[in-house]
Design a protein around this nucleic acid. Structure first.
Lengths: 117, 117
DNA sequence: AATTATACTATTCTTTTTGATAGTTATTGC
DNA sequence: GCAATAACTATCAAAAAGAATAGTATAATT
């Protein structure tokens, strides 16, 4: 019998018990998919994201963006070097591989609202 | 300008800011997709699930199963009425509508392990 | 000169989620 | 008769996520 670690999947230093858990480790939580959903088709600035997600607090938005950045899904680009006047968030190439999945997640949510409520 | 509630989606008494959030409200968290992934192709008993997910605690497995049941995704069938000798968990018809999505989630996890680690 | 906008961070607090450990009731196999 | 298995529940604790509120530095706008 193998030990547990050998059956675990790892990514960025974290271990996950199965491939589905790994995905959820990266996009799970209350806000991450919402952010990714909004970034799917366009780059957005911090305050533009806030307006699209009026119920998230600034701190939480900030933390989630940072987490997505650390996992390599989102990139943060600062314009006008010295003071950060303009910051644009967008999907990285790696993040773009998630687009079909995010779309499916959004579609299933729509489907539920239409058919089960 | 509309107020916030009017733009929210609701399901089973909970409100979500967007369709992607609604989906994640139902399948998010550390263990739910793993459970759904294992139930995708077969009915499983409590202890069978435990063996497939050796790192989850009994309490957590129990709670997550109950949450999935409450959201109507998983059904719990008890055999041999009086003492609960045999309990089988399986997807409901509603839960089965998630299969393609769960599969995509698992596939993306596999893809990440193969290409980004 | 005062206000507003941008993109945050800091602090504190509450809620939710998850884990660790032990205990329960009943049944089956030896 | 005794240990093992099944399917949990109970209690306590820790960690993570999220909310509320306030504050900061810079620049543009009026």
């Amino acid at each position: 019998m193998k030990n547990l670690e050998s059956t675990m999947l790892t990514f960025k230093g974290k271990a996950y018990p199965c491939c589905a858990s790994l995905t959820m480790g990266l996009i799970g939580g209350k806000w991450k998919t919402a952010i990714l959903f909004h970034l799917m088709n366009e780059k957005l600035r911090y305050n533009e994201l806030r307006k699209l997600m009026p119920t998230v607090t600034e701190r939480t938005l900030s933390l989630q963006l940072k987490a997505l950045e650390e996992d390599g899904l989102v990139k943060r680009k600062v314009y006008t070097s010295k003071p950060p006047l303009k910051v644009e968030y967008s999907l990285t190439d790696f993040g773009k591989t998630l687009i079909p999945l995010i779309q499916s997640i959004a579609n299933w949510g729509d489907f539920v609202v239409e058919n089960y409520s």
